[in-house]
Computed example of a mutant assay.
Amino acid sequence: MPRLDVREIPPVNRHDKIHEAFDGMDPGETLTIVNDHEPKPLYYEMAAEIPEFDEEAYEVRQNAPDEFVAEFPKSED
């Protein structure tokens, strides 16, 4: 499954990189994002704009104060 650590990417460029990675995935795959904050704005953006984003299967966990790991699944249909 694709994994993208965006903590070293300038914030202004993060969403573009994430969208590129998500677009390149096959249906049924999940993109794992490692971020320095909970990616709620990204979740809402993808839920509103990306029909293939399976928002019901989205998960996020906080592993450290500056480490959030979010799973962005791509629906199979």
Rank of each mutant, 00 (worst) to 15 (best):
M1W: 04
M1R: 05
M1V: 13
P2K: 12
R3H: 10
L4V: 03
L4W: 14
L4M: 12
L4S: 00
L4T: 00
D5W: 14
D5L: 08
V6P: 01
E8R: 14
E8L: 13
I9R: 04
P10W: 10
P10T: 06
P11G: 02
V12G: 04
N13C: 11
H15E: 15
D16I: 13
K17G: 04
K17P: 02
I18T: 07
I18E: 06
H19F: 14
H19M: 15
E20P: 01
E20H: 11
A21E: 11
F22H: 05
F22D: 00
F22M: 07
D23M: 14
G24I: 00
G24T: 00
D26K: 14
D26I: 03
D26M: 11
D26W: 09
E29S: 07
E29W: 01
V34D: 06
D36E: 11
D36T: 06
D36L: 06
H37V: 10
H37W: 13
P39K: 10
P41K: 12
L42I: 15
L42D: 05
L42G: 01
Y43I: 07
M46V: 01
M46E: 02
M46I: 03
A47D: 00
A47M: 07
A47R: 09
A47C: 03
A48V: 00
A48M: 08
A48P: 00
E49Y: 05
E49I: 04
I50F: 13
I50Y: 15
P51N: 09
P51W: 08
P51C: 07
E52I: 01
E52C: 00
E52A: 14
E52P: 01
D54Y: 01
D54H: 03
E55Y: 12
E55K: 09
E55N: 06
E56I: 01
E56D: 10
E56Q: 09
E59Y: 05
E59D: 09
V60I: 13
V60D: 02
R61T: 14
R61Q: 11
Q62T: 07
N63S: 09
N63V: 07
P65G: 08
D66T: 14
E67H: 04
E67K: 08
F68M: 05
F68D: 01
F68Y: 15
F68H: 12
V69E: 08
V69Y: 03
V69M: 01
A70M: 06
A70S: 14
A70V: 03
A70N: 02
A70G: 02
A70E: 01
A70K: 02
E71C: 05
F72I: 08
F72P: 00
P73K: 05
P73D: 05
P73H: 09
P73C: 08
K74F: 04
K74T: 05
K74C: 03
K74R: 11
S75W: 05
S75G: 15
S75T: 14
E76R: 14
